[in-house]
Amino acid sequence: MSASSHLSHPLRSQRLNALTHEPHERLEALVKAHEPFASRENFARFVAAQYLFQYDLQKLYRDPRLVALVDDLPVRCRVAAARLDLADFGVPVPAGDESIRSREMGVGEALAWLFVSEGSKLGAEFLFQKAAALQLDETFGARHLAAPDGGRAQGWKSFVKVLDGAALDSEQERRADAAAIEAFERFAVHLERCFA
């Protein structure tokens, strides 16, 4: 019996959602505090943070074990879109580090990192609309926030189905829980760096 069956949220996606509520709220407050929509310069800093987070996850989006579960996983990665957005602003691509990329992750841990990245595409709808006030869209400056092919909801539903259906033991569940929280904290680190 998995650890998740003992919790009030029987579905893994619901459990991870509940577990990450606090770090998610902290991150949202941090984003607001940096006012990414106050100017194009501020928005470019926000894009740099997005790029660094997607750079962290780039290898996971290509991981054969995960692609076997989510067949369109490679095209879901937004690192290339963020890189093009930075080029639009004439901003150099920040150097990422290998601390996450070089880590050996089990499927549960990897899915939890992707849970945070894929889930952010839902909130990106609001950000994408705000970017329009800066004359930014899916062709200039805000590609990484644009809706994926097939729409945001459909992409999320198909990912959640895989996340909830993956067979994990109790140790893998524990690692997944920790990874989801770490992913939010990692994005906060990138944000602080890019707005420093």
Results as ranks from 00 to 15, higher is better:
residue 172 Q to F: 00
residue 17 N to S: 12
residue 195 F to K: 12
residue 23 P to K: 00
residue 134 L to H: 07
residue 140 F to R: 13
residue 186 R to Y: 04
residue 59 K to H: 12
residue 129 Q to V: 10
residue 180 A to H: 03
residue 91 V to S: 06
residue 40 R to Y: 07
residue 42 N to F: 00
residue 114 L to D: 01
residue 119 G to F: 05
residue 18 A to H: 12
residue 6 H to L: 15
residue 195 F to L: 09
residue 147 A to L: 02
residue 154 Q to T: 09
residue 33 A to I: 04
residue 180 A to N: 05
residue 149 D to F: 04
residue 136 L to C: 04
residue 30 L to V: 12
residue 192 E to C: 13
residue 87 A to H: 12
residue 38 A to I: 12
residue 39 S to R: 12
residue 18 A to T: 08
residue 39 S to E: 12
residue 164 D to Y: 04
residue 40 R to T: 10
residue 129 Q to L: 12
residue 156 W to A: 04
residue 108 G to N: 05
residue 50 Q to F: 02
residue 33 A to D: 14
residue 3 A to R: 10
residue 192 E to M: 13
residue 51 Y to C: 07
residue 78 R to M: 05
residue 26 R to K: 15
residue 196 A to L: 14
residue 145 L to H: 02
residue 151 G to P: 06
residue 115 F to M: 03
residue 73 L to T: 10
residue 171 E to I: 09
residue 83 R to N: 11
residue 44 A to F: 06
residue 85 D to Y: 07
residue 123 G to P: 01
residue 130 K to W: 00
residue 17 N to E: 10
residue 86 L to P: 03
residue 113 W to F: 15
residue 47 V to Q: 01
residue 136 L to F: 03
residue 189 V to C: 05
residue 183 A to N: 09
residue 135 Q to R: 14
residue 101 R to I: 00
residue 146 A to E: 05
residue 135 Q to S: 15
residue 49 A to M: 03
residue 20 T to D: 01
residue 166 A to T: 14
residue 66 L to K: 02
residue 86 L to F: 08
residue 78 R to P: 03
residue 148 P to S: 12
residue 112 A to S: 15
residue 116 V to Y: 07
residue 106 G to H: 06
residue 135 Q to P: 01
residue 194 C to Q: 14
residue 158 S to Q: 14
residue 70 V to L: 11
residue 175 R to W: 06
residue 132 A to Q: 13
residue 63 D to M: 02
residue 159 F to L: 09
residue 47 V to L: 04
residue 16 L to Q: 01
residue 98 E to K: 14
residue 108 G to W: 07
residue 133 A to Q: 14
residue 148 P to E: 11
residue 65 R to P: 04
residue 27 L to D: 05
residue 153 A to Y: 07
residue 64 P to F: 11
residue 110 A to Q: 13
residue 122 L to Y: 05
residue 83 R to S: 15
residue 181 I to K: 10
residue 48 A to Y: 02
residue 143 R to H: 02
residue 145 L to R: 01
residue 37 F to A: 02
residue 86 L to S: 03
residue 118 E to P: 07
residue 144 H to W: 09
residue 95 A to T: 15
residue 126 F to V: 00
residue 141 G to Q: 07
residue 119 G to N: 06
residue 31 V to M: 08
residue 13 S to T: 00
residue 141 G to L: 08
residue 89 F to I: 02
residue 23 P to A: 02
residue 115 F to G: 01
residue 90 G to P: 11
residue 146 A to L: 03
residue 89 F to V: 02
residue 21 H to A: 10
residue 155 G to T: 12
residue 32 K to R: 15
residue 171 E to F: 01
residue 145 L to F: 09
residue 68 A to V: 07
residue 119 G to Q: 08
residue 51 Y to N: 03
residue 59 K to L: 06
residue 39 S to D: 11
residue 22 E to W: 06
residue 126 F to Y: 13
residue 90 G to T: 13
residue 136 L to K: 04
residue 152 R to F: 01
residue 118 E to L: 14
residue 84 L to D: 08
residue 57 L to R: 02
residue 151 G to S: 09
residue 103 R to M: 14
residue 152 R to L: 00
residue 155 G to N: 15
residue 159 F to T: 13
residue 114 L to F: 04
residue 115 F to T: 02
residue 192 E to F: 08
residue 129 Q to S: 14
residue 195 F to D: 04
residue 13 S to H: 08
residue 105 M to F: 11
residue 132 A to F: 08
residue 86 L to W: 04
residue 19 L to H: 06
residue 145 L to K: 00
residue 140 F to H: 09
residue 64 P to W: 10
residue 90 G to C: 12
residue 150 G to S: 04
residue 156 W to F: 10
residue 191 L to I: 11
residue 27 L to N: 06
